[in-house]
C-alpha cells in the first residue's frame, strides 16, 4: 500500500536531510505508528505520501502509484484515496459538525442523498451521533478531533494518515482517539499515525517505525515495541491479550478474529458491514472512476 525505497528528502537551503535513505513497506490494512522526536522526519514522511512534497532521491509508491512520476493533475485522485488528520483538527469554524463532514463529500461532487446517508453514519461511527448541529467551538478537543477523523474517513479512503492527532489532547482523550483509529483500521483501512505519545504507542501494541533525525532506526512488528517507560494507562484486556498474528492481512476488510476479543472499549457500536464496505452505489462508482483515471 505504501512503499518507500531509499527515500531521501532534503529541503532547500538545508544541509541535513529531513529523511535519509528510508526504505519501508506498509502493507494494506496495517496499523503503523511512526515515532520520533520533533524534527525526526515524521511529518515529512506523511507529506511525501500525500505528495505535498517531492522526494529528493528514491521512490515512493502509494496505492499503486509512483508518486515521482504522478503528474500534477492526478494528485487530487491520489488524495481521494488518503484521509488525513492533523494535530490542529483544521475544522471550518463557521460550519456545523455535519457541514464540516459533508464538505469533504460536497467538494468531490457527491449527491445530496449520499451526503444525507453517509455523514450521519460516519458521525455515529466516530461517536458523535446527535452532535450534528454543534459548531466546532462548542466541542471538546477530543470531539473536534473525532469530527476531523469523520471528515477524513467519510469517503472511506483505503489509507488514513494521522499526523500527531493526539498532540493537543490529554492522555485519556488521546487513547480514545487512537482506539477510534484502531477501529477504522479493522475495517481494512491502512492507518499510519505519527506521534511522540509513547504511552499510547505502548498500549496499542502495533507496528512501530522509529525515526531519528531522518534516519530509520528501528521498525518493530506489532507488540515487540516498548519505549521502556511504564504506561500510565493500561488497557487490561488489550495489554494481556496475545499478540495478534492476523494483523497485517486484515486486508479483506473483515474481522476474521474472535469478535469477543474486540469488545469495544469505548462502548460505541461496532463498525458494521456498511462502514466496512462503503459500497453504496455512489461509493463504488467513485472508487472505480478514480482508479481508472490513474491508470490512464
Amino acid at each position: 500500500m505504501i512503499l518507500f525505497e531509499n527515500v531521501t528528502k532534503t529541503y532547500p537551503r538545508t544541509t541535513r536531510p529531513a529523511l535519509d535513505d528510508v526504505s519501508l513497506e506498509i502493507p494494506r490494512g496495517e496499523f503503523a505508528f511512526v515515532v520520533g522526536t520533533s524534527g525526526s522526519g515524521k511529518s515529512t514522511m506523511m507529506q511525501l505520501v500525500m505528495k505535498e512534497q517531492d522526494v529528493t532521491r528514491g521512490r515512493v509508491l502509494v496505492a499503486g502509484r509512483d508518486l515521482d512520476r504522478l503528474p500534477e493533475r492526478k494528485v487530487p485522485a491520489l488524495r481521494r484515496e488518503i484521509g488525513c488528520v492533523f494535530q490542529d483538527f483544521r475544522l471550518l469554524p463557521n460550519k456545523t459538525v455535519f457541514q464540516n463532514v459533508a464538505y469533504a463529500l460536497q467538494v468531490l461532487g457527491s449527491s445530496r442523498a449520499r451526503i444525507r446517508q453517509t455523514v450521519p453514519e460516519t458521525l455515529e461511527l466516530v461517536g458523535l451521533a446527535g452532535m450534528e448541529k454543534r459548531l466546532p467551538h462548542q466541542l471538546s478537543g477530543g470531539e473536534q478531533q473525532r469530527v476531523a477523523i469523520a471528515r477524513a474517513f467519510v469517503n472511506r479512503p483505503p489509507i488514513l494518515l494521522a499526523d500527531e492527532p493526539t498532540g493537543n489532547l490529554d492522555p485519556d482523550t488521546s487513547l480514545g482517539i487512537v482506539q477510534l483509529l484502531d477501529r477504522i483500521n479493522r475495517t481494512g483501512t491502512t492507518v499510519v499515525m505519527a506521534t511522540h505519545d509513547t504511552v499510547t504507542v505502548d498500549a496499542m501494541r502495533k507496528r512501530v517505525i522509529r525515526l531519528d533525525r531522518g534516519v530509520l532506526v528501528s521498525d518493530m512488528e506489532a507488540g515487540d515495541y516498548t519505549t521502556g517507560s511504564i504506561p500510565r494507562i493500561r488497557l487490561e484486556e488489550e495489554a494481556e491479550a496475545p499478540r495478534r498474528a492476523d494483523e497485517p492481512e486484515a486486508s479483506d476488510g473483515y474481522d476474521d478474529g474472535d469478535p469477543t476479543a474486540y469488545d469495544e472499549p469505548d462502548g460505541l457500536p461496532p463498525i458494521g458491514r456498511d462502514a466496512d464496505e462503503p459500497r453504496s452505489r455512489g461509493g463504488i462508482f467513485r472508487r472505480h472512476k478514480a482508479v481508472q483515471t490513474s491508470d490512464r
Binding site: 493533475r73 484515496e81 467538494v107 471528515r151
Partner: peptide, 15 residues
C-alpha cells in the same frame, strides 16, 4: 482554510 481542506480531500484543481 477551506481551500486547504479541499486540497486534502482531493478536490480537483477546477473545483
Amino acid at each position: 482554510r477551506e481551500t486547504g481542506i479541499m486540497r486534502l480531500v482531493g478536490a480537483s484543481n477546477f473545483t
